[in-house]
Amino acid sequence: MSRLEITVLLPAKNEEIAIGSTVERILSLYPGAEVIVVDDGSTDNTGSIAEESGALVIRHPYSKGNGSAIKTGLRAATKDLVVCMDADGQHRPEDIGALLNKMSEGYDMVVGARDHEGQAGLHRCLANGFYNRFASWMVGHKIGDLTSGFRAVRRRKFLEFISLLPNKFSYPTTITMSFFRAGYSVAYVPITVLQRAEGSKSHINLWKDGLRFLLIIFKVGTLFSPLKLFIPISFSYLILGIGYYVYTFSVDHRLSSISVFLWSTSVTVFLIGLVSEQITQLLYKDR
């Protein structure tokens, strides 16, 4: 495994406590690996410590977000096989091997899936469970961990969707759903998540970033599988129109204009979804 040509990409912001040991452990396991640390506007010694530990460091002059750091690292990577992982000490470099072993079976992306013990609190575990189920319905495949940042992926296929990736923390959501919708092979392997290094803190805001995750699911779902969203909405208007018609007919023996409006809205929403579905096919005409 140590001879594999891989790039290990670590976005980092104020992670001077854990970054050095993380880089050293990666290089001890994979001496020939290209380790890229994207210093996302840190105000501590993250960049210099990463350099001293043997990583190639790319510095953002100010903080642009986790997703932006990933995009910067992907553009700079020289290997086709890229492993993305956190720099805060939670992801074990020893688990890289499990991802690479699965990749050797012909997968385009392998994601490290956390169990409930690896989630940062019950509230986040419940939220991630909801995101996983909702996104699984959107793409028609079981998604084991939608928000995990620990994954191995083929760089050239990752780059196909780089313009879609947000600059903040929801890049795993976007790339996971994009790969499934594009028909690429995605697998999940269980990983062990450690406690965050003492003194290191999460940069994710549960409510603000949780809402962003949900909006990203809708955005990517609308982009890649619009009928999954438009048909339920259209059907809801149809049922409401029928229900209101039954009510007005039983009370006043008449057809209400509201029922007509609901039915016409149902048809309009369905047609918009149908046209959107045809447009999405153009995204894949060269793939």
Rank of each mutant, 00 (worst) to 15 (best):
L262I: 01
H141A: 15
V35A: 07
N101K: 15
D88G: 06
I19S: 00
V23T: 04
A152Q: 05
L262H: 04
E277Y: 12
S42Y: 05
S104P: 10
I258M: 10
E198M: 02
L164T: 11
D86G: 11
R133A: 14
V275N: 03
P172A: 07
R133G: 13
T43G: 13
Y131L: 15
F218V: 06
P166W: 01
I6E: 10
F158K: 07
P11G: 03
M1P: 07
K285V: 13
T7Q: 03
L229M: 07
D44W: 00
I233A: 14
L99N: 02
N128Y: 11
R154Y: 13
L223D: 00
G32N: 13
T7D: 01
T248H: 06
S266T: 07
P190N: 09
F150T: 08
S48H: 12
A33R: 06
V110R: 05
L227N: 11
V83H: 14
H91W: 08
I175G: 14
E198K: 11
D40I: 01
M177G: 08
G67Q: 11
I242P: 07
L56Y: 03
L262M: 11
L283V: 00
I216G: 02
Y237D: 00
V220T: 13
E51C: 01
I26L: 02
G273M: 12
G140S: 06
L165M: 14
I17G: 01
V153R: 08
W263K: 02
W207D: 11
V251D: 03
V269R: 08
T176L: 13
G140P: 06
I36R: 02
L215D: 04
F224G: 00
D108V: 14
T147A: 15
S202A: 08
R114M: 06
L227S: 12
L29P: 07
L240C: 14
N132L: 09
K285S: 03
H123Y: 04
I6A: 02
L206P: 13
S236W: 04
R114D: 03
L238M: 12
L126G: 11
T173A: 04
R59P: 00
Y30P: 05
L164K: 09
W263N: 03
L126N: 11
S178V: 00
S266V: 07
L146W: 10
M1V: 09
Y244A: 03
S104L: 15
V189P: 02
R3S: 15
I191K: 00
S259N: 05
L255W: 05
G54C: 04
T46W: 06
I36G: 08
E105A: 10
Y184I: 00
L4R: 04
T147P: 03
K157S: 12
V220L: 07
L271F: 07
Y188R: 10
Y131E: 05
L214T: 08
S178F: 15
H203F: 09
G149Q: 12
D286E: 14
L223H: 12
I272Y: 05
L282G: 15
T72L: 11
L206M: 09
S42P: 04
N167H: 14
V111I: 15
